[in-house]
Amino acid sequence: MRFGGDHLPVWADGAGYLDPDTGEVLPTWDQALDQLDQDDQDDEAEPLHVLRFGDQMDIQSVLAGTPDADQLIQYLSKYLTKSLGDALGADDPRRKAHAERLLDALRFEPCAPTCPNWLRYGVQPKGAKAGMAPGRCKGKAHKPDHIGYAGRRVLVSRKWSNKTLTEHKQDRRTWVLEALGVEDEPVGPHRYIWRPVKPGDPELAPIGVRLLRSVHERQRWRNHMNQLQALGDGLDFSATEGRAA
């Protein structure tokens, strides 16, 4: 670490961040990476921290319609929506004090290439701009709910299916339209006009009404899909309606 406290790099228009003592322009993010590559070739680059995972792995496949599918999805949903900070606990004073020390340390640790904390190490963050200050990064890694973890808890879909989220949405749309017996015809780009609705617009219904409409629409879609599935299976929809609800 080169700078700390109030002794920090200063911004200069047209140049970027400068060393407050010498006036030297700090290396940009790309220049720092190039230097790191050179040090790596010279066997001089060493990581500051090394973290290794254990050997324990529990890999299970999840197939729709299997008895364990719902249980596995519920298990994943529980931990994917759980705050990482909850594990530290707030009832134990020692754990609480430890969490506070950890968050205070993480406040000044770089979390991403764009993190202002790189200025403490004499490197301009990626996309550097005026007003950056170490300890004031808004990245979620510095927040109590994440305690230093800023990555995704689940790999994006294309890592597994080689499809983007947009392509998955299109597949879902195609499946629903086929189930409804409706052709997937492209919608004209000028059929709808989208514009922001300002507060106080007389055509904007109250939030309670909008929520009820959304719930009603979802229920109507679900009932229609359940009816089509029942007909496809040769079942009486009236006998399955209560179970589907």
Rank of each mutant, 00 (worst) to 15 (best):
R2S: 00
A12V: 08
A15D: 10
G16V: 07
G16T: 07
Y17R: 02
D19N: 12
P20S: 03
L26F: 09
P27H: 02
P27K: 06
T28M: 00
Q35R: 14
L36M: 14
D40K: 11
D40C: 04
D43M: 10
E44F: 03
H49A: 11
R52Q: 07
M57N: 14
D58Q: 13
Q60Y: 06
S61G: 15
V62Q: 03
P67C: 07
A69Y: 03
I73D: 07
K78P: 03
Y79C: 01
S83V: 04
S83D: 15
A97C: 05
L102P: 05
L102K: 13
L106A: 00
R107D: 02
C111G: 15
A112P: 02
A112V: 04
P113G: 03
N117H: 09
G122P: 06
G127Q: 09
G127F: 06
K129L: 03
R136I: 01
H142D: 01
H146K: 09
H146F: 06
Y149I: 05
G151Q: 11
R153K: 14
V154Y: 03
S157L: 13
R158A: 00
K159E: 13
W160V: 15
W160C: 07
T164E: 11
L165H: 13
E167M: 09
L177E: 09
E183F: 09
H190P: 03
H190K: 15
I193E: 13
W194G: 01
P196E: 05
V197Q: 12
V197F: 02
G208V: 03
L212E: 15
R213F: 00
S214G: 07
E217G: 02
R220P: 02
N226W: 02
L231R: 14
G232Y: 11
G234T: 11
